[in-house]
Design a protein around this nucleic acid. Structure first.
Lengths: 343, 343
DNA sequence: GCCTCTTGTGTAAACGTTTTCATTATCTAT
DNA sequence: ATAGATAATGAAAACGTTTACACAAGAGGC
């Protein structure tokens, strides 16, 4: 009484038809007669048949998988992006396979090989780096890959990002408008392209107000609360020339700055103003509620997957450049962590 | 000059051997002679061969996929669990396929069918519910499924959870020890098994201190900050019999309570103490830092995947019951949101 | 009544692997 | 020398599908 999984052959036998007919009854019902269609249906029900997807995919030379390369799946920042992607993919009949690269190029390469080995039909990169095997794709052939979150300079694959320079500019401008002039910037890791773009926006805002950016006011963090704390401790130590405002490249670091400020008995925003980046869920309920640049993470994911699906639909066709990269808009959310410059 | 992907046949031809030999050179190198092994290696390099995983899996009747059913991938709570799972799976050569069920039984059923259709070798359930197709598995056959996070009553599949009753007890006990007696509980959704368990722990702690649980002090939230805010507003309104302490079933709701308390000019912990649950990353850096029950999310994921891998290794063998469920320990982290009962 | 067109079905090839079995060549022990 | 073991390889079956092609039967037009 061994449990044997029913194959298409069992169904065919049970219905008294050929396996071809069973297959057709399932995928091209209109070419098979009403009566046999019914026979097949009852046979399927009787046998408990479920098509072996692997066999099917082998034949059709597709996998139905979309591979998603993420630097760290443990980072909640990605979860909402992921959700947007998953939803779109699922609606189109694709499954999402997560590849956690841990920022290791080797793992990126391993996963990128999934495309060649038919384990995935397409790929979305959230990791800001082109995996090695992809870099030497023969010219003229455009791999089914979409880049999201972090643009990759010199790579003209379809991309969906926010305008980091502009967002940083508007955040800094907000502080300038409040009368601040000693504005510190807690940036991301230097290696990161986001950092470059946001520093540029910060600089442009300052210089258009006639202020020269002071390099000693720019700190490199790693997006974490802890790095925000230590940056702020260092910058606020010197009570004489301390900055009156901080523009931080993540909400985490902004929170770190606030923690450090409170530690020193400074009030936010009375003594020091703080702007974050991302608008994580807690930003609105921190104390004080955080002024920040909202990053539409779900939209980012949705755009990425829809770009990819469009690409997959017209395989073979040379996709018109369209607008590339696609920019999803950010929004400066003004809450209570920013206020006028003291005296 | 069409890009044609090399198959094992191309390699065989290039090396002047049969495809069987190529396959053996790759998977059983010891049975093939040194010289041909080399020939095959150079042929592989020359052709750029990558094995077609789908064909391989079809033949081997496996998929190398572990399906992970999550109620909402957008919820950051799961990201660290996921990370633990992904790491273990990846080390064992498995890929993780995420199934976002949105709490819809229909989607759960769809995904559970992946097991039958060979799209996944095994499954981990984080959603606290047995998908319908799994419920009527013939007795005696144990499907390769592990349950994590939320136990499923009456289901004796391998399970890894925390002891919610005990954790809730220790959190409540902490408040009792500080002299509180009017202790409110902001619970999760009533339908949730976590809620039942934690309410039980809360009740047991009270009654062992000779206090009778007051039903009007128990509120049902949905784990969100917002639900914590509205619960606390309602409970703190009556300044006469207001609770002096809150035990909340999530850090989000605890933060909501603090927000609402501050709104009313109450100080935490001076006027009201608050305990959360989960120990999310921000808990330590909220104002005040949150006393909470730490839930080892990564460990949870690691345990789940290792249970599953053990199960997969000894297929056919009847797995000894072992300790089931596996309990991963929680820890009460005392920070500054709790203090002695006022007056 | 014959040709053609349509409709429904079956046969068999193909997808790219792994593995059983048979075959040959080489080696060891008598 | 010869039987028997050992080592290396190839031929072909199998995994479970989809689909090109062939075929039979009935319908319609002359």
């Amino acid at each position: 009484m061994i449990e044997k999984i029913a194959t298409i052959e069992d169904v065919a036998e049970h219905a008294g038809v050929s396996i071809a007919t069973v297959s057709r009854a399932l995928h091209k019902p209109h070419v098979v007669s009403e009566s046999t269609r019914e026979k097949v249906q009852t046979a399927i029900a009787a046998t408990g048949y479920t098509a072996n997807v692997m066999a099917r995919n082998l034949r059709l030379n597709r996998s139905g998988m979309i591979l998603l390369l993420v630097p760290d799946i443990g980072n909640p920042f990605f979860s909402e992006i992921l959700s947007g992607i998953e939803q779109g993919a699922s609606k189109a009949g694709y499954n999402v396979l997560i590849g956690d690269t841990q920022n290791e190029p080797e793992r990126e390469a391993t996963y990128a090989a999934y495309l060649r080995s038919n384990q995935a039909d397409a790929m979305i990169l959230l990791n800001g780096r082109l995996p090695a095997p992809l870099a030497n794709t023969p010219r003229g052939i455009i791999p089914p890959v979409v880049i999201a979150c972090e643009r990759i300079p010199g790579c003209n694959l379809p991309t969906v990002i926010i305008d980091n320079e502009k967002a940083a500019h508007s955040a800094t401008k907000h502080l300038l408008d409040l009368g601040h002039s000693r504005i510190a910037h807690i940036a991301g890791p230097a290696s990161n392209i986001l950092t470059t773009d946001r520093v540029a926006g910060y600089r442009r805002a300052l210089s258009s107000s006639g202020i020269e950016a002071n390099p000693s006011l720019i700190y490199s963090g790693d997006f974490s609360i802890e790095s925000g704390i230590s940056a702020a401790r260092a910058l606020l130590k010197d009570s004489k020339n301390r900055p009156t405002a901080f523009f931080c490249s993540s909400d985490g670091m902004a929170i770190g700055v606030i923690v450090a400020a409170k530690e020193l008995g400074l009030r936010v925003p009375h003594d020091v103003s703080v702007v974050g980046f991302d608008d994580i869920h807690l930003a609105a309920n921190y104390d004080p509620p955080l002024t920040t640049v909202r990053q539409p993470r779900r939209r980012l994911g949705e755009q990425a997957i829809s770009l990819l699906l469009a690409r997959l639909d017209k395989t073979g066709t040379i996709p018109e450049p369209a607008e590339n990269p696609v920019i999803v808009p950010t929004e400066l959310i003004i809450r209570q962590s920013t206020g006028p410059c003291p005296n």
